[in-house]
Design a protein around this nucleic acid. Sequence first.
DNA 1: GCTAACTCGGATATCTCGTATCCGAGAATA
DNA 2: TATTCTCGGATACGAGATATCCGAGTTAGC
Lengths: 165, 165
Amino acid sequence: MKLSGGVEWALHCCVVLTAASAPVPAARLAALHDVSPSYLAKQMQALSRAGLVHSLQGKTGGYVLSKKPADIPLLDVVQAVDGASPAFVCTEIRRRGPLATPPEQCVKQCPIARAMGAADAAWRASLAAVTIADLAASVEGDSGPEALPRVGAWLDEATGARRSD
Amino acid sequence: MKLSGGVEWALHCCVVLTAASAPVPAARLAALHDVSPSYLAKQMQALSRAGLVHSLQGKTGGYVLSKKPADIPLLDVVQAVDGASPAFVCTEIRRRGPLATPPEQCVKQCPIARAMGAADAAWRASLAAVTIADLAASVEGDSGPEALPRVGAWLDEATGARRSD
DNA sequence: GCTAACTCGGATATCTCGTATCCGAGAATA
DNA sequence: TATTCTCGGATACGAGATATCCGAGTTAGC
């Protein structure tokens, strides 16, 4: 029961992209967080495939959020990076062995699968209730209203003035 | 975000142990479900270490539930087999890179970690609300009141009359 | 009291999946 | 039109899960 490590990176990227006003290359995002550029690129590709971010190619290319931050639940980001398959997969072992449950009693899934599925649904519901906009607001509350715009400005420097660092 | 496959086996074993009236060897449990005896033994060891089942050695040994089924939440079984560590681990990447958040603003964990932690808590709460006894009752509702006792009798055959198969 | 057989428990190979990386395709700028 | 920068998929590497085996301990029977 472990979540892919790239999920954390993807979520942070989505939050900071909120403050950017121009396409941000994956390399720039990697530099901001001081993480592997190659690997973060992979996560951004996943977000792009899921339609959460729009990718622009070419010299001034990069990634832009394709929706309003308030319309992006955390669940979408997590599922884009980590996959949408549920944590628990029922192997139907009740149908095996000498005392296998007869097929006519297997119309509904077994109680174990139901309970695990309910827990999975609760987890997803919790993630679906929070959006990227909520996270951005929380960052303001924690680090002050100027923190996020400052990051956004730093990200924009890449395109505006390449002489920043 | 994938759960160890052994979790399913462990849960099924706990449910059927409800109906047994004598210690059941791991090999017998494996035969019931037609799964690898060696690997299931590993899961049972995890349950034993967690104190959910009591292990008896010797010729008439085996595993017995160490508590009333109503006192064993699914969460305990899942955590015993899969580990208790949370699915999301915050790497604190906000403290890295050129615009690292100053340490004095890191007294509380970042909004992302909080949101993921809340989802994890919801998942655990859902699992903690269901007990092995609830599952056993659901099995009765699905397959009839005689299904579970029949399995229990089959498990007991191992010790009572070894001439069963 | 002793032998023998059966049990659990931990230590040991194998393998899939996540981690990390690289190079080619495509587009906008100059 | 050529160049430079970007994304995108295909490619090695490593950790963790999967599956297994053998030794330690205990009980039953003789």
